Amino acid sequence: MLRLLSPLSRCSAFKPNIWNSRSRSESMLASLRDTKGSYKKLKRVGRGPGSGMGKTSTRGHKGQKARSGNRKPTPVFEGGQTPITRLFPKVGFKNPNAKCLSVLNLDKLQQWIDEGRLDASKRITMKHLLKTRCVHVIKDGVKLLGAHRKRLKSKIEIHVSQASKSAIGRIEYLGGKIVCEYYNKLNLRALLKPEKFNVLPRRAMPTHKRDIEYYTNPEKRGCLVDKRHLFPQLPPLDPVPENPTQAMPN
């Protein structure tokens, strides 16, 4: 029986059938498929009528949305007519460095003191002015003016953002004290509404040249007069008299 078998038959009788295993693996690779729902075919438009999405390529007939480019115009697009931004010329400008200071006159300050809303024996700050509605809105600070300054009869100590020369003279003539303090947005909010902060921020120093020159000037009663040495770029000040408002009329 062994003599009738060919040499190849005798060898394959004792070895696995590698040809059958290879064909089996090839058939498994050919039958692999993606999990259902894991792959989504893209919509191929513009491939002729036979594709089912030919001719207008799902864009409809004519119109703005059928054109190439941006299908959603910008909010300022007005349908092709001259936009309003080009129809009217520009007039004026807005100063980005301007400050919106609330104005307070000395006569109204004396009225609030007479009515008992403000205590002249204690320091008056912008928080007291806003709380007592002496000033209704404070955006960038309060500027004290000297309108009807002769009506002020009380000796007070007040801290505001800015003050006019006449207001400073009247307050110091009565023996009071006025200090112009610098506040940025954060520090001003911390002064007016300290309950909004878990930890109050540190006082910021002015960075603009205009603010530095104002709050380091003793004539303006700035709060940084004693810290003028921190700004070496400032020019030297002219000598200021000790009592410039001593001879001011009552």
Rank of each mutant, 00 (worst) to 15 (best):
E242Q: 14
V160N: 05
G146K: 10
L200R: 06
K155F: 12
I168Y: 01
K196R: 11
L230G: 07
S57H: 10
S23F: 15
R33N: 07
P201T: 04
I168A: 05
K90E: 09
I171F: 06
P218L: 04
T35Y: 09
K185R: 05
R151L: 14
C11N: 03
E213R: 07
R210L: 05
D119V: 11
I212T: 06
Y183A: 09
L5R: 13
K139Y: 04
T74E: 07
N187I: 01
R151K: 15
R47Q: 15
G37N: 10
K150D: 15
K155Q: 10
A66F: 13
L192W: 00
T35F: 01
P236S: 11
A98Y: 11
N187D: 00
K165E: 06
V76L: 07
T132Q: 14
I178E: 00
G92A: 09
E157T: 14
P239M: 02
S166N: 12
N70K: 04
S25R: 08
N217M: 06
Y215H: 12
G169P: 02
G50I: 04
T56H: 13
N97C: 02
G37Y: 00
L192S: 01
P201V: 06
N243R: 14
Q110L: 13
I156V: 13
H159W: 06
C134Y: 03
L145G: 06
Q246C: 04
Y39N: 10
G52C: 03
K90W: 10
K72G: 00
T125L: 12
K62A: 11
R123I: 15
G60V: 06
G92H: 04
R3I: 12
S102G: 10
R33G: 00
K153Y: 01
K131S: 10
R10M: 15
R203P: 05
G79S: 02
S161H: 10
R59E: 05
L192V: 00
P49M: 13
K55T: 10
I178K: 02
K193D: 07
R44S: 05
S102H: 06
V240M: 05
I124K: 02
K150H: 06
T216C: 14
S166W: 11
V160Q: 01
K177N: 15
D114S: 11
G50R: 07
L186C: 08
G141P: 05
K165M: 03
G80N: 02
N95P: 02
R149D: 07
P249Y: 07
R133Q: 15
R86V: 10
K150S: 09
G169Q: 04
R3Y: 12
S6V: 07
R170G: 03
L174E: 04
K227S: 11
G146F: 01
E242M: 13
D211G: 09
L109T: 14
P89R: 12
F231I: 09
P236Q: 08
F88I: 15
T245L: 10
C180S: 00
A190W: 01
K55M: 14
W19I: 11
I168V: 12
Y183D: 11
R133D: 15
A247V: 08
M205F: 03
D140R: 00
P249A: 04
C180V: 02
K153N: 03
L130M: 09
R189E: 14
N243H: 13
H61V: 15
R203W: 07
F77P: 02
R210P: 02
P7S: 05
P235Q: 08
R33C: 11
S6T: 15
L2S: 12
